[in-house]
Design a protein around this nucleic acid. Structure first.
Lengths: 229, 229
DNA sequence: ATCAGTTAGTGTAAAATTTACACTAACCTT
DNA sequence: AAGGTTAGTGTAAATTTTACACTAACTGAT
């Protein structure tokens, strides 16, 4: 039985919430198998923890480094990787293509600008895809992404994660838009601000926005240092 | 790499919150190795889902059947089973005792009266142990239990699980005591009742307590059918 | 039969939180 | 100077949360 890690990396670009998907490489020799998209994921190595595996795998497939990934669920259906659609690809890239694979799902939230995914290893491409327009994915990855999104929304409300997605200096409107996009619903401006202020996680800077077409907004920064690990 | 499931089964007996622990069987031949307690857990079979594995393993080790178990976290430290204290036992009971094992933690909440654990397989004993007096356990099981308890408390508040722990007919005082014991803090009687009523999960029966030494309480039952699966 | 002991059951006022809602301020462009 | 655009701010009503104390109904003992 093999163990893998799958990384659902959500990215934000002040307009859209996207997920980082790779396109599986065409197996050598095979000519016209259907290319599939998937969430970056691979087998866990012998001497690394799950958290480390998640970091490494994301790096190997997409060149993204230093992203905080959080475990959210294990997916262990006996035949989650034995669908016909995935057979050819597994045969080309896995030492034991028939083996059952249990995967641990990780998710993360980053700002897209900071990270420029570069496909490598068995990934042919790595690209950001709109969360609300995800095509049919390899394995059970549609399910994995769905569940990650649920967890993300929940965590966003409960723990006010999400500053990761913004530039170091940001306006409250940007922050609000972020919430609206992730939660997929509109929020009230005044109430939103009250909420954020109450959490005491941001501080105003001495600085304002500039170069904008309208009243410049107060810039803020995150108060507590961003999570690492 | 092996995959296991560990089941943290919490039991309630109207006074205490306990966890179901097994005592590992003495390996044949070995005479005086230190017997360790652990949470019931074992390797996942080739053709079962994780959920099924949790059910089977709990049944095999403790004879408990039909308990709703919920996955809560994967534990994958590379050497979580390679401590000296666990070596002898692994050698006796595992085909590949040196192998790394990643485990998926499950938890559950049951009423003790309904379930009479009977040790079997490699479990020498199966017994309920007070949650607040847990000894040092095998592997990383202390950590696993701690985390399960956190999740349990969280779920209790959020989703008002916990009726499982009571007889079919129960009084609100019993229910309150249950909450108090799990959360390990006192609650206000009137506010508690308001809360429970607001959730609309219980209905009063036409029946009252009898044979008690004091004013008999109204009996209630759970409104929505208990979760299965 | 009465009394003492025990747990059941109930309401309300104050505080805190959440919700809904509309106008002025400051910058840019023309 | 005027028009367009987003920033920023307060309050009243509704809801939720919290703190708190007395009466009711049974049993067992006298």
């Amino acid at each position: 039985m093999d163990i893998s890690v799958d990384c659902v990396v959500f990215g934000f670009d002040e307009d859209e919430l996207k997920v980082l998907l790779i396109e599986q490489k065409q197996p050598d020799g095979k000519s016209a198998i259907k290319l599939q998209k998937a969430v970056p994921g691979d087998l866990v190595d012998e001497n690394e923890s799950l958290d480390q595996a998640a970091q490494r795998i994301l790096l190997e497939l997409t060149s993204l480094k230093g992203i905080y990934l959080k475990q959210f669920h294990a997916f262990g259906d006996p035949d989650r990787v034995s669908g016909l659609k995935d057979r050819d690809w597994l045969r080309s890239f896995r030492t034991h293509p028939e083996r059952r694979v249990i995967t641990i799902g990780y998710y993360s939230l980053v700002k897209m600008d900071d990270f420029n995914p570069q496909a490598a290893s068995f990934a042919a491409k790595a690209q950001w895809v709109d969360v609300y327009k995800i095509p049919s994915l390899a394995f059970d990855h549609n399910n994995i992404v769905d569940q990650a999104l649920q967890v993300l929304r929940h965590e966003l409300m409960a723990d006010h994660i999400g500053f990761e997605l913004l530039p170091e200096k940001f306006t409250l409107s940007q922050l609000q838009k972020l919430y609206e996009i992730i939660l997929d619903k509109k929020l009230d401006k005044r109430n939103f601000r009250k909420n954020i202020m109450r959490t005491d996680t941001v501080t105003p800077l001495e600085e304002k926005q500039s170069g904008v077409y309208h009243k410049p907004a107060q810039l803020f920064k995150v108060k507590r240092p961003r999570k690492t690990t």
